[in-house]
């Protein structure tokens, strides 16, 4: 029972961490970034490169975030910016970008599965069974990430500008906010978060050119269900992630795999605005 609870918490934490970058981009830019899965993969490979060169596994996360930020800013300029007025096309273009990124990774690293070292390995003895310590750490990471993002949005000038752009872009521009720059920074931030998330989940998974893909659709569903808000995302991760764990445990892991998608489609039919609104 306690283990089940831990499974729910750690699964929800992973989902929260993975979906955060997608949500930031959708929230500020009204843009669905289908390259999100590829960004996760890039983060995984960044982690692989860092540990393969003998650096500390703790460096994998900042390295992945930094690389992701640069990548995101470049991608925003080249691919995303021309498509602001065509949001459905932006979905397709970012999906195409994901294909390109996956192929570049195949060129560079080959198709085979790679591994990245974990900063902390082994298990902790909890309730008589060993529980992966890295999974437990991810709970803390998710909490810290949620707090940091909240602080960024609510305590800094960048956050204020970003919120102003979300609420009313024209009014924000009329007050001197360069909304184009806010969008570029946001995309960079979202990509950085995605890559960092990729690095954070690699200790639990192997690294391969398509590792991010299964996370893409689930993240997308979570973000929509969240109603684009940090507490909403935490709630959605807990509810849908919890449902996934329960279904996988008591029904079948295969049906568990579609729990999030199906539940999300149902929730959005009843509450199109997601959990945190009206």
């Amino acid at each position: 029972m306690a283990i089940l609870l831990l499974d729910i918490l750690t699964t929800a934490s992973m989902l929260f961490i993975v979906a955060a970058g997608l949500m930031i981009i959708l929230g500020v830019m009204k843009l669905i970034n289908f390259a999100h899965g590829a960004f996760l993969t890039v983060g995984g490979y960044a982690a692989h490169v860092v540990t393969a060169h003998g650096f500390s596994p703790w460096l994998t996360i900042p390295a992945a975030a930094a690389f992701g930020f640069v990548l995101g800013v470049v991608v925003e300029r080249v691919v995303v910016r021309p498509l602001y007025s065509r949001p459905l096309d932006a979905i397709l273009a970012t999906w195409g970008l994901g294909i390109i990124i996956a192929q570049v990774i195949v060129f560079a690293f080959g198709r085979e599965v790679q591994f990245a070292q974990s900063p902390i390995s082994g298990t902790v003895d909890l309730f008589g069974t060993g529980y992966s310590s890295w999974r437990l750490i991810l709970i803390a990471v998710a909490v810290v990430l949620g707090l940091l993002l909240t602080a960024l949005l609510y305590l800094t000038r960048f956050g204020l500008n970003a919120r102003a752009v979300i609420m009313n872009e024209n009014l924000a521009r009329g007050l001197g906010i360069d909304s184009i720059r806010v969008r570029a920074m946001t995309f960079g931030l979202g990509a950085a978060l995605a890559c960092a998330a990729g690095a954070l989940i690699t200790p639990l998974l192997s690294v391969d050119p398509n590792m991010g893909l299964p996370w893409l659709v689930n993240s997308f569903m979570l973000v929509l269900v969240s109603g684009i808000a940090i507490p909403g995302l935490a709630l959605a991760s807990l509810v849908l992630g919890g449902a996934q764990v329960l279904v996988s445990t008591f029904v079948s892991p295969i049906i568990g795999g579609i729990t999030i998608v199906v539940l999300a489609a149902v929730i959005l039919r009843i509450k199109p605005q997601g959990l945190s609104r009206g």
């Binding site: 204020l160 919120r163 102003a164 609420m167 009313n168 024209n170 009014l171 521009r173 009329g174 007050l175 001197g176 906010i177 360069d178 909304s179």
Partner: peptide, 28 residues
Amino acid sequence: RAPHLNAREALAYTPQEYAIFQDLTVEE
């Protein structure tokens, strides 16, 4: 010229509708 540049160069524009951010505080 882009509105944000005009705003920074001391044009203060007050639209008729949706002129304040309702969900932000007075301070913000």
